[in-house]
Write a protein that binds this DNA or RNA. Sequence first.
DNA 1: ACAAAAGTGTTCGATGTACACCCATGC
DNA 2: GCATGGGTGTACATCGAACACTTTTGT
Lengths: 251, 251
Amino acid sequence: MVIAVSTVIFALRSGEAESDHDPARPGLWLPLVRRIRPPFEGQWALPGGPLRRDEDLEAAAARTLQATTALEPSYLEQLYAFGTLDRAPASASERVVSIVYWALVDSEEATRAAETENVHWFSADDLPDLAFDHDVIIEYALWRLRNKVEYARIAHAFLGDTFTLAQLREVHEAILGRTLDPANFRRQIEAGNTIVPTGKRVTGTSYRPPKLYRYNQAIEPVDRGPLGSSARRRPSSDGAEASAGPPDSAG
Amino acid sequence: MVIAVSTVIFALRSGEAESDHDPARPGLWLPLVRRIRPPFEGQWALPGGPLRRDEDLEAAAARTLQATTALEPSYLEQLYAFGTLDRAPASASERVVSIVYWALVDSEEATRAAETENVHWFSADDLPDLAFDHDVIIEYALWRLRNKVEYARIAHAFLGDTFTLAQLREVHEAILGRTLDPANFRRQIEAGNTIVPTGKRVTGTSYRPPKLYRYNQAIEPVDRGPLGSSARRRPSSDGAEASAGPPDSAG
DNA sequence: ACAAAAGTGTTCGATGTACACCCATGC
DNA sequence: GCATGGGTGTACATCGAACACTTTTGT
């Protein structure tokens, strides 16, 4: 019996017209690796690998992310543990239990993400055939992401240090797949004091220059569930299963 | 490296005055087992055990539940996978990754739950010292339960086939730890058509007899995330007895 | 008739949504 | 000035909390 750790990695990419609509609007992309051995040889799959004996689960997820994208995740959370008996074809020599994480990577840096023969980025709207049930896993990760963006402060994980409200709104729109009212979005964000204005503005626009904001680090960066690190927060509402890494215990 | 599966089992118990307030109000209780070997020998811990080679994760959780309470869970969902290196004392011979489930058992039947020298039920408000970080795990499970009862139809997992609105409200109150307005609760429940009136009423009351309701099986039993839906649904009793687990896949 | 809980109606504030409108800048 | 997106104001529907009130039974 083997424990593997895989990660669904999301980044936001603009342009790259390929999807159905408005090519200017950014969308969700994720890197997949080509399997180089059976089962499912040649098919695309989530990056991952066996858990090392001296390695935390989360560290293993970060390692696979590093190995494929060469980037640091700005957000990392456990998704689910998959362990039914039928996950691999009968030909498989040993049973595998996969603990899957999902991660967000910074949009700016994602542009220099590694892309090789066996590592390729795909639009979340246009995925190839995947090995195992990885399509289901990605579907689940997408659901979790969309759910969580509505109540947790994770959208900024796609952006740099400073950003305009329009950029933040674009992130939300890309994740949710629909447009949002700029006026109402502004008020909702301002209502929580999750962001704080830097004094600066964008320059070089052909219109009124927008203010630049920064995330308010004083506030808990994101609701990762009651166990997130040592301090526990009272979450407003958890859309579903949630939380990142609670400490641990054996049993 | 070993994979273990543990389960946080919740039941609702009335009376048993022991807590702080109103002894008539039911509260959350859960069974713990006494460890009979190091580490933490003699301390209370979550029921669980090693995952068998030919056993699904969910089946393993159900098995531990069966072993301790001798009851079938009316709800079973994966909670989290715990796997940090420091979960067991250094003395431990091997590293353990625990995949923890949480379950709800029917309140009526829970009264005949097994209680032995090494299996004891505790009030969730009054837990003993626990082995490992099981206190944190239980805290997390409680948080998840309280969170989920507000948007998913899980409360009925504590009740029998038919029930009054007052009973359903009591379940919610016990989980949330506060009283709810009967009038508003009625409307909220009736708004979703999650329950359907049986023609019957309770008899033998000394006041106006309340209607008996039954859960509407036609509706998705519970929000288990996007994967619960796509996959199979248990045709059994009222449908709430499944788990949250997405099917699975390897990698 | 009375007590007790079932069940109904109404008001109020918070929140989300739609949309009209003004503001500031580059051209 | 004009176009464009930044930013503000406002009206309306929805939803949950609070609470007064009526109904129905057993005793």
